[in-house]
Design a binder for these strands. Structure first.
Lengths: 626, 626
DNA sequence: TTGTGGGCAGTCTGCCGACAA
DNA sequence: TTGTCGGCAGACTGCCCACAA
């Protein structure tokens, strides 16, 4: 697809412009006096939850968040003496001029530099040439390992996890005795490292020997640090590191006092805001508590998602193994985080409580755009038709069956397959998520959302595949939805190839239907191939149903999508990820880690699999950066 | 002297207050969560030219200089987009609240943190308790060595310069075979290092062996870096390092953009200025091109020193061996450094040209308080009578003979011994300083200053010691001064003990007398012991005289010392250093390095030696910090 | 006086399979 | 499947003096 566009450009003579762009891009790199940093590797080091805005796109910049990053970096909280900047709003609409990736020469610590141009409204935005800036992308083929004492000791080499070696490294010639090869790997600074990769020992294992200790020494790696390998699009191996958070005692920068830093952040933004001149910021994903440059689409989507006290929500966090996992929490209050300095700010306006306490600290205040609610998951914009990159439908389904319903630029609710609904129900009744345990007001919210899921154009036998439920109209479908399911066992296939049984103990209590004043426009969709779907889905489920009430079957979010969403900001993969997202969110028990190689396989078994789940999900969650 | 004062304090019951101060001092240290850094070691690492203001004293803070430090640290020049801060003057009068010494945990890079409180005038200053803050002091017993390849290689140890070992290390037991001992040394962070010090080899030499390579590794020393040892007042050995300026390619901080840093500096100062609230800055002596916190005394002294285009001046720079040397230059213009943003600023208002080009870059613009002119050298405040610490007069002279003339708090010109005058003349005619070569207007300035040196109360035979000149009144003394001296050879004794001949080729051309409208109040002074002086001075000089005109013999600087000089700011050692300073400045050929162990020996031969020349000089130059 | 290199002994690095978690 | 250990060979560190600058 992209190559076609490029070819056309060459034909109609615009290749000169293209090469000019290339030159300017090169010039930009030379200005920075450093080689361009590989985006996939950068993102791999940044972690699965980090995404950057696209140059030219619109964002909201949150000075509070920026200040938080400074505080986190200096490990000193903000001085109360910091002056107010009356001209500086709590959120500053900006156009992204420039995004460059960086890595500290010494520590390999990654960070991004962004130039932001304050704008008054979305209308005054001028297009900014992208200079061939490819969308940053989280790598698909990668692995990340926490280094052990043996890995970092001078006594030995690096023990490569078997799956990592088989997935990432070039195929070994197993006829050799022992099988071995030389790996040539590049780091963020484009330094070349050569490792001897050998398969030996009893039992046999993959090891990196010669060259490894040099790497450990140069990067000053210790046990507990992480090393990650990725393979870029040219199948080249790249290596990145993540230093563990070594507790350094409040590092003063020796350049600026922390006060001056905070003042500098605010004053620079205030000056830029008043003069409408661009300003430059650094975003340090692994230091900053939260992202503070939020795409407009993501922000607006969050603004039009109803949140209320008592609502339960999900939020993604990174695990130790650099994968994502969702934690569930409850909104305890909606209030200003800093009512004195930043009244009416949306930054961390939600005070929350987490269902789980324990490993890994989670913030007690979050921002609306960080959380997932059932409602927010069903509300997303319509993508442009060309954008279906890398979202490969399952065999037996055409792509359009996973496409977004409707053609206009309005938020719409997709059609759901029956599995989703089953899982939806299951999830909401999963006692692991403490649903209904801490607050009686949770369930009304959830059930109201359940009601608002519109199901139509779905044949009965498809909807009921693998179950003994049958119905004939929307009303009965909703009855179905509201029934009670007893312990539900989903058969899932894990990466190992073995079939595992995941037992979801689900029980539903006190489901009280509620109405939402949300209307829903539904457009046509093509009907799915029933038989394929039915055969692809083989849940061994034991279901019990309980009749529930429902009123509204058509809901329409009061959002004008075209006004809110800049087409540039539209995420890719919306067309297919929506379904996956729903099933993901719904079927995911709150204590289940979303490992990329295992997470979506059960969904796949149920004919809802997506090849690049992390990628698509990331985009879906409001990031324009894939 | 100091111990007497302390004893008295104990007697009259103020010891409780002292211990309270000690406790508060300790508390301050604990707040910083680090051990107090040894001031002498810090200053040794900072270099001989660096001094810090005293807590409680008054200073001028120069935002431009601070910004320069940021630019030097980030290695990026200031963006022209930086906003103006109309409330921020180019020089901000502040009271120093706090000065703490720091060193980077990783690199040992030293820096100082200061809290400054903007004040409107000197009258509103409240006394600030010093919490036992001892005046920082440049070490007397120290040596600094540039590390060779052998010193830093893994193959061997550290070759200790003989003199360093003999001066600093504990006496070796030379009866041992081989003589050796264990040195226990502390660094800036109070880490303990043990080195085996051994005297062996053929020929014999001092070496540090065991333990040295650990130190090299931990501090990541390379050939070209410097290591320095000092002995503190408790005779404890301390070690410091100075990393060579390794050219790192424009290090971005990953925290703040350089713009934000510059803005932060200015905005923080502006906010502090408008709110009269304290603000905190870091001063990094080895990064900052110039000191930007200037004691009021030093500033005012400079302001009342006449400078004019074409004037020649001296300015101290640090040599590679961590000693000082003076470079001579000429004022080319007096103008605003940054007329747009900082009109009428005194910061780098002098555009200069240097007599020597070559090794080591020197700035083309300097500030008035950085330079030495003949006039500025003779203008200094009167010290409080108690302050004569560590300034030990030579045998044959009583301390009062080196005391400042006069009792009031006014700037005064001291009495000069004849040697000084001879050297003064010599220096001005030294062709090495290109006097009169580049600008015809130099000499009038100099000769006018010569005229303004008042010489009285000096017996003729003393004045003329070692020469065949005689006179009987002031007028003839001035005639003497203005005579032409042909090649003058000063006999000086170097540290080696060998006598060297320093040949000053001096010739005077076109001396045109000029009047200055400066009056001079002179108070009594005790007469010197003529015979001792005469015998102590043994120059072998060949002098030729030329009659010159002179008018004013009594000059009085139009300065009210008590109004300008805060008594807290008065430097120590003024009483004796003045004479030394003059002789130093005068006899110093511009290409002569002021090595502390050799510099003042010739002066000493001429009965003008001072035991702690660097220390005294530093104070004299306007720094309240010794 | 001191920087560098050769000689040499003792230590450390780094590759191997064994073993166990 | 992979973390750590003992064994072992070879490389490196670090102390010594010789030699020269």
């Amino acid at each position: 697809m992209m190559s076609l566009v490029q070819d056309q450009a060459k034909i109609d003579g615009s290749s000169n412009a293209a090469s000019l762009f290339d030159e300017m891009k090169l010039f930009g790199e030379m200005q920075n006096n450093k080689k361009m940093i590989n985006s996939e590797l950068w993102h791999a080091c940044a972690g699965p939850l980090v995404s950057l805005p696209q140059p030219g796109s619109l964002v909201f910049y949150f000075p509070q968040g920026h200040s938080e990053q400074v505080a986190a970096t200096t490990r000193q909280s903000v001085n109360s003496q910091i002056p107010n900047y009356p001209n500086l709003p709590s959120q500053l609409m900006c156009q992204v001029h420039n995004v460059t990736l960086h890595a500290d020469k010494e520590t390999d610590e990654i960070y991004a530099q962004m130039t932001l141009q304050p704008v008054n409204s979305e209308n005054e935005v001028l297009p900014i040439p992208n200079f061939g800036h490819t969308k940053s992308k989280h790598p698909t083929d990668y692995f990340c390992k926490n280094l052990t004492a043996s890995d970092t000791s001078t006594h030995g080499g690096f023990s490569v996890p078997r799956r990592a070696a088989e997935k990432l490294f070039p195929q070994l010639d197993y006829s050799m005795q022992p099988p071995n090869q030389e790996l040539i790997v590049r780091d963020l600074h484009d330094n070349v490292w050569t490792f001897r990769h050998i398969y030996r020992g009893q039992p046999k294992r993959h090891l990196l020997t010669t060259g490894w200790s040099l790497f450990v020494g140069a990067k000053r790696l210790r046990a507990g640090d992480s090393v990650l390998f990725i393979r870029d699009e040219k199948a080249q191996l790249l290596v990145g590191i993540r230093q563990a958070n070594r507790q350094m005692p409040s590092l003063p920068s020796s350049v600026l006092s922390t006060d001056s830093m905070h003042i500098g952040v605010l004053a620079a933004a205030a000056h830029a805001a008043s003069s409408r001149s661009p300003f430059t910021i650094y975003y340090n994903p692994r230091t900053s508590p939260s992202q503070f440059v939020i795409p407009l689409a993501k922000f607006h989507k969050a603004m039009y998602t109803q949140v209320s006290v008592g609502m339960q929500f999900g939020m993604m966090f990174e695990t130790e193994e650099s994968s994502k996992r969702r934690y569930m929490g409850t909104i305890m209050a909606i209030s200003d985080y800093d009512p004195l300095r930043w009244p009416n700010s949306k930054w961390r306006s939600l005070q929350v409580e987490w269902d789980e306490h324990g490993y890994g600290e989670r913030p007690t205040r979050v921002s609306v755009w960080e959380i997932e609610t059932p409602e927010s998951i069903f509300v997303f914009p319509n993508p442009s038709p060309e954008r279906k990159r890398q979202c490969i439908p399952l065999p037996g389904l055409t792509g359009s069956e996973f496409g977004l319903v409707g053609q206009s630029n309005t938020y719409q609710i997709p059609h759901l397959g029956p599995e989703s609904i089953v899982k939806l129900q299951t999830q909401f009744k999963n006692p692991n998520s403490r649903l209904g345990a801490s607050f009686g007001c949770h369930q009304p919210v959830y059930s109201s959302i359940l009601q608002n899921i519109q199901i139509n154009n779905v044949p009965t036998n498809y909807l009921m595949a693998g179950s003994n439920i049958s119905n004939s109209n929307l009303a009965t479908k909703h009855e179905l939805i509201q029934r009670r399911y007893q312990p539900l066992v989903l058969q899932s296939t894990c990466a190992s190839g073995k079939t595992e049984l995941v037992n979801y103990e689900s029980s539903m209590n006190q489901i009280i239907p509620q109405n939402h004043n949300i209307k829903h426009t539904v457009s046509d969709t093509t009907s799915s191939d029933e038989s394929d779907l039915a055969s692809a889905s083989q849940p061994s489920e034991k279901l019990e149903h309980q009749k529930m009430q429902s009123n509204n079957t058509s809901i329409e979010p009061e959002i004008n999508g075209s006004a809110i969403i800049n087409p540039n900001d539209l995420p890719d993969c919306i067309d297919s990820s929506n379904v996956e997202k729903v099933s993901d969110w719904l079927m995911q028990p709150s204590n289940y880690e979303t490992r990329p190689d295992a997470l979506f396989l059960s969904a796949s078994e149920n004919a809802l699999g997506i090849l690049e789940p992390l990628d698509c999900f990331q985009e879906f969650m409001g990031n324009t950066d894939s």
